[in-house]
Design a binder for these strands. Structure first.
Length: 647
DNA sequence: AACACCGTTGTGCAT
DNA sequence: GATGCACAACGGTGT
């Protein structure tokens, strides 16, 4: 019998350089079904804001069109049911012989795919999996690194040396087989919708499952944001393989840019156009092949080398950027779920951050909620997340993130340092969650890795190198054009005060049409714009954080240290120091025994779920002020702690 | 074993 | 404006 193949698209929404798709075609199938299984984890459990949804739908639409160009009977058939329940029914209904997909090493995807592979085995369906999401198969990279997670660039380079150059791109298919008939002689299994972590993004009820497996028109079309019950996207960035390939052509055509790219020399304040090439969201959804990108870049670099022209080198070069991506994938591939949290993470330093994750000690996983050890810190967190800290550079970045879904890498550094070790002393896990929700290029491995990097809990440790929310921005954008764009209430503030508007005399404030007062709740008074005062004195907080980091490093716990695992870590920290260091409950080893509210099991076991303990659920609302707060679980004040430490 | 050197992307001041 | 240094000092790697 000629093979009857399901090609399962996931984060590989492209036709070019797809080893997995080509492997499916190499089977010379009688029929090939290009399908997408509508995943409830992505709809309800992962943090996905409107902008990344839009980007995904763009990518799906585009690849569907490209498939139809090769065979007008075919397209991307979107089936509205999760893979684990749907695929076994399809195997039968469509008389499938082979299932083919691209390898995914994300912790969640590994569990899902293991279940799918077991179900395929039981159904007598052969499974073919090909790596194509990274330069090297992440498991092979780990193996070449003595079986250890790749935690530094030098380790990646050494391991890569053993593996040789990444595979050359494979050809784009010129034809595609017909799909078979789309018989659905079975019922849809509707996934559990609660808890719905993305509820705050919805105007209407989520409705992608309610119209049945084939959707409202019965044609397996790509869903819309309206069907998801979501407001329109606010980003101008659009997804799809077609755009990605054109972008890459433009990058490569500029040989000097490609050959001499140095990341630290690109400006985080540049917009329209931004200073870096913005290929990351396309890499995330697989609309752009990373290996194709790599070899295109290397061709240019080699050509320039032969011509004795200047070229940049790893790690600052474009190749270096792609190597970092593989590094984070390698770390995640080895560490699994624990990579995404402090608790039980063998390679993440333990710091007694504020707003630590709650932990289910039985599953050894964070629950998705966090402990509010100090009400003031939760307010700081909300103000940070909504761009109302009173530090214009930080607020401009956070507003660009919320509006456009993409910010420059150094901008990410600046706000991440500010939230964690260089300002608020709040857990990197809180920041990672906000980025997960808002970034169109959110890649779990890279996001988690970079948050650990910036918080000096893994990959990087020089915590005394601290970004200033004033000086760092000024270095790139003395006039504050970036602030004027994204914090428009400050657009007429004199250059002298644009990074520190609270220092502007009232007369200058009035002239600029903005009053600097309050805590971010008030945005206007008597027709005049209001911008908040800084939520703390930066130099004071910086010093508190430095001392906190120094003592936490001296204690030397990691996420899997016994004292962290059993909650006794508090004994090792001074109650007068920074962070939640007293009380019986709370903290990353808060020993929160977590159970599903209704006691039912998820289809996929134990992804960190969607509940959150924070007071401010709204993504667009303004943070609420709580005056006269008190520290709930700690006995000392910030000021007291600072004074004591400073002696 | 002890030590030097390096690490994608700090700040603030002096020269 | 460019460059160099102190700041106070991290872990990994290599000699």
């Amino acid at each position: 019998m000629a093979p009857r193949v399901i090609y399962w698209f996931r984060t590989d929404l492209r036709l070019h350089d797809s080893p997995a798709l080509n492997a499916a075609l190499d089977l010379k199938p009688e029929v090939l079904y290009p399908i997408w299984c509508w995943d409830s984890h992505y709809v309800y459990r992962a943090r996905v804001g409107v902008n990344r949804w839009q980007f995904l739908l763009d990518c799906q639409q585009d690849v569907s069109k490209s498939i139809s160009k090769l065979n007008k009977k075919s397209k991307l058939f979107v089936l509205r049911e999760p893979a684990v329940t749907l695929l076994p029914k399809l195997f039968k209904a469509w008389n499938i012989s082979h299932l083919v997909f691209e390898k995914d090493t994300d912790a969640y995807a590994r569990e899902r795919d293991a279940q799918v592979m077991e179900l395929a085995r039981k159904a007598g369906v052969e499974v073919i999996v090909k790596a194509g999401r990274t330069l090297w198969d992440s498991d092979e990279l780990v193996k070449a690194n003595d079986g250890k997670p790749t935690m530094s660039m030098s380790q990646v380079q050494k391991a890569a040396e053993k593996l040789g150059e990444p595979d050359k791109p494979v050809d784009t298919p010129k034809t595609l087989p017909d799909p078979g008939d789309m018989k659905l002689d079975f019922d849809q299994t509707q996934p559990k919708s609660a808890p719905d972590i993305n509820e705050k993004h919805r105007d209407e009820k989520e409705g992608t499952y309610s119209a049945g497996i084939a959707g409202p028109n019965g044609d397996f079309s790509v869903p819309t944001l309206e069907e998801l019950g979501m407001k329109p996207a606010t980003t101008q960035h659009r997804g799809g393989e077609s755009i990605a390939l054109k972008m890459l052509d433009d990058i490569i055509a500029n040989e000097e840019y490609t050959g001499t790219f140095e990341k630290p020399k690109t400006s985080p304040a540049a917009f329209e156009p931004q200073a870096t090439c913005l290929t990351s969201p396309y890499l995330h959804f697989g609309a752009l092949s990373v290996r194709y990108f790599y070899h295109k870049v290397q061709d240019v670099v080699e050509k320039r080398r032969r011509a004795k022209k200047a070229v940049s080198e790893v790690p600052v070069s474009l190749k270096g950027q792609l190597l970092f991506r593989d590094m984070y994938f390698g770390a995640q591939a080895k560490l699994g779920w624990s990579f995404g949290q402090t608790y039980n993470n063998s390679h993440c330093r333990f710091i007694p951050w504020h707003l630590p994750s709650k932990v289910d000690v039985n599953k050894k996983l964070i629950t998705g909620e966090y402990e509010v050890d100090d009400e003031e810190k939760d307010i700081w967190f909300q103000r940070w997340a909504h761009g109302k800290t009173g530090f214009p550079w930080i607020d401009a970045i956070m507003r660009q993130l919320r509006q456009e879904g993409w910010i420059h890498h150094l901008a990410r550094h600046s706000v991440a340092c500010f939230l964690t070790r260089g300002g608020c002393y709040i857990s990197w896990e809180r920041g990672a969650e906000v980025f997960e929700e808002l970034l169109i290029d959110h890649e779990a491995a890279c996001n988690i890795g970079n948050w650990q990097w910036l918080s000096c809990t893994a990959f990087f440790s020089q915590f005394y190198r601290c970004y200033s929310p004033v000086a760092f921005g000024k270095k790139w954008d003395d006039n504050g054009d970036f602030i004027r764009k994204f914090v428009p209430e400050l657009k007429d503030m004199p250059k002298k005060y644009i990074y520190e508007p609270h220092k502007a005399p009232i007369a200058d404030q009035k002239k600029a049409g903005v009053l600097i007062k309050g805590d971010g709740e008030e945005t206007e008074r008597d027709g005049v714009a209001v911008y908040p005062k800084p939520m703390f004195d930066f130099n004071t907080q910086r010093e508190i954080c430095m001392q906190g980091m120094k003592s936490a490093y001296a204690v030397g716990f990691y996420g899997n240290s016994k004292a962290v695992m059993d909650g006794t870590w508090k004994k090792a920290f001074d109650d007068s120091g920074e962070g939640p260091t007293s009380g019986e409950q709370g903290g990353p080893a808060g020993l929160d025994s977590f159970e599903d509210a209704d006691g039912t099991e998820e289809l996929i076991t134990s992804p960190p779920t969607a509940k959150r303990a924070g007071r401010n659920e709204g993504s667009t609302g303004s943070p609420k002020s709580t005056r006269g707060h008190k520290r709930e679980h700690s006995q000392s004040t910030l000021e007291g702690s600072f004074k004591k430490k400073a002696r």
